[in-house]
Simulated scan of single mutants.
Amino acid sequence: MASIKVHVKKDDMVKIIAGKERGKTGKVLRVFPAKGRVVVENLNVVKRHTRPNQLNPEGGIVEKEAAISMSNVMLICGSCNEATRTGVKTLEDGSKTRYCKKCNASVDK
């Protein structure tokens, strides 16, 4: 599978724009660029049946977050507090930064 352009990073706040969790927001926990997927905190929770092991001696049913396609999330801008598209600017010192296309403010901290 071809890798997808990564527009979100770990610890970004994102809004889900498609699927059963549409309209909800959360923080990105993990990014899988090769698969084009992200894991968002407390969203897309699935139940896994686990066998007993040392960490979980009883085993049983464990709830955990599953990955969501990166195309189904939009970054939330810190200054205008809306889900927005992002672009990449090259600064004077040669470093790159992401910016909000609505308010033109930098998204990176």
Results as ranks from 00 to 15, higher is better:
Met1Ile: 15
Ala2Arg: 12
Lys5Tyr: 09
Val6Leu: 07
Val6Ala: 12
Val6Cys: 07
His7Met: 11
His7Phe: 05
His7Tyr: 05
His7Thr: 12
Lys9Ile: 14
Lys9Ala: 11
Lys10Ala: 08
Lys10Ser: 01
Asp11Asn: 11
Asp12Leu: 05
Asp12Ala: 05
Met13Gly: 00
Val14Lys: 07
Val14Tyr: 01
Lys15Val: 02
Lys15His: 04
Lys15Leu: 07
Ile16His: 14
Ile17Asn: 11
Ala18Thr: 03
Gly19Cys: 14
Gly19Pro: 14
Gly19Asp: 07
Gly19Arg: 08
Lys20Ile: 13
Glu21Ser: 13
Glu21Tyr: 05
Arg22Asn: 02
Arg22Thr: 12
Lys24Leu: 08
Thr25His: 04
Thr25Val: 15
Gly26Tyr: 00
Lys27Gln: 09
Val28Asn: 03
Leu29Met: 14
Leu29His: 02
Arg30Thr: 03
Arg30Ile: 05
Val31Phe: 02
Val31Thr: 06
Val31Leu: 01
Phe32Cys: 04
Phe32Ser: 08
Lys35Gln: 13
Lys35Pro: 01
Gly36His: 03
Val38Leu: 13
Val38Gln: 09
Val40Ser: 10
Asn42Cys: 06
Asn42Ser: 14
Leu43Val: 09
Leu43Ile: 11
Leu43Glu: 06
Asn44Ile: 01
Asn44Val: 06
Val45His: 08
Val45Phe: 05
Val46Asp: 12
Lys47Pro: 00
Arg48Tyr: 07
His49Ser: 13
His49Met: 14
Arg51Gly: 12
Arg51Cys: 14
Pro52Cys: 03
Pro52Phe: 04
Pro52Trp: 05
Pro52Ala: 15
Gln54Val: 06
Gln54Met: 06
Gln54Trp: 08
Leu55His: 09
Asn56Thr: 00
Pro57Asn: 10
Glu58Ala: 13
Gly59Ile: 03
Gly60Phe: 11
Gly60Tyr: 02
Val62His: 13
Glu63Arg: 09
Glu65Cys: 08
Ala66Asp: 14
Ala66Phe: 06
Ala67Val: 00
Ala67Trp: 08
Ile68Tyr: 00
Ser69Met: 11
Ser71Met: 08
Ser71Ala: 12
Asn72Lys: 10
Asn72Gly: 02
Asn72Ile: 00
Val73Phe: 01
Val73Gln: 04
Leu75Arg: 13
Ile76Lys: 02
Ile76Ser: 03
Cys77Asn: 09
Cys77Thr: 07
Ser79Lys: 15
Cys80Val: 02
Cys80Glu: 09
Cys80Ser: 04
Asn81Ile: 02
Asn81Val: 03
Glu82Ile: 01
Ala83Glu: 08
Ala83Val: 03
Ala83Lys: 07
Thr84Gly: 05
Arg85Met: 06
Arg85Gln: 07
Arg85Glu: 11
Gly87Trp: 00
Val88Lys: 15
Thr90Glu: 15
Thr90Cys: 03
Thr90Lys: 13
Thr90Tyr: 05
Thr90Arg: 10
Thr97Ser: 10
Tyr99Val: 13
Tyr99Gln: 10
Cys100Lys: 13
Lys101Arg: 15
Lys101Pro: 00
Cys103Pro: 13
Cys103Trp: 06
Asn104Leu: 07
Ala105Tyr: 12
Ser106Ala: 11
Ser106Asp: 15
Asp108Phe: 01
Lys109His: 07
